[in-house]
Simulated scan of single mutants.
Amino acid sequence: MSCNCDYVVPNKESLAPHYDNCRLMWDELHPGIPCPKNADGTIMLPNKHLAGLDVDILYHLGLDTKTYDLPAMFGDVKFVCMGGTKVRMREFAEYMREVLDLPNKGQKLVNLTKHSQRYAMYKVGPVLSVSHGIGIPSMTTVLQEVIKLMSYAKAKDPIFFRIGTSGGLSIPAGSVVVSSFGLNGNLEQTYDIPILGKTRKLPALPDQRVYQEVHSLGSADDGFGTYIGGTMGADDFYRGQGRLDGPFCDYTEADKMAFLRSLTGMGVRNIEMEAPAFSAYTREAGIRACIVCITFLDRLQGDQVTPSKATLTEWQRRPMLVVGRYIAQYFKK
Rank of each mutant, 00 (worst) to 15 (best):
S2Q: 10
C3V: 07
P10G: 00
A16G: 13
H30T: 00
I43C: 00
M44G: 09
P46E: 07
P46C: 04
K48L: 10
H49S: 10
D54W: 06
I57P: 02
Y59V: 08
T65W: 02
T65R: 08
Y68C: 06
L70G: 05
G83K: 02
R90V: 00
N104L: 15
G106I: 07
K108D: 04
K108F: 03
K108Q: 11
R118F: 09
Y122C: 05
V124S: 07
G125K: 12
V130K: 04
H132L: 00
G133L: 09
I134F: 08
I136S: 12
I136V: 11
S138H: 15
F161E: 00
A173T: 12
S175C: 01
G185Q: 04
I193R: 04
L196I: 08
R200C: 12
A204C: 05
Q208H: 13
V210D: 01
E213T: 14
S219P: 00
T226Q: 12
I228T: 11
G233A: 09
R243W: 12
L244A: 09
P247H: 02
C249D: 02
K256D: 09
T264D: 08
G267L: 14
V268S: 05
V268W: 04
N270C: 14
P276D: 04
G286T: 11
C293S: 14
F296S: 12
D298C: 14
T311V: 13
M320P: 03
V322L: 02
Y330R: 13
Y330S: 08
F331T: 01
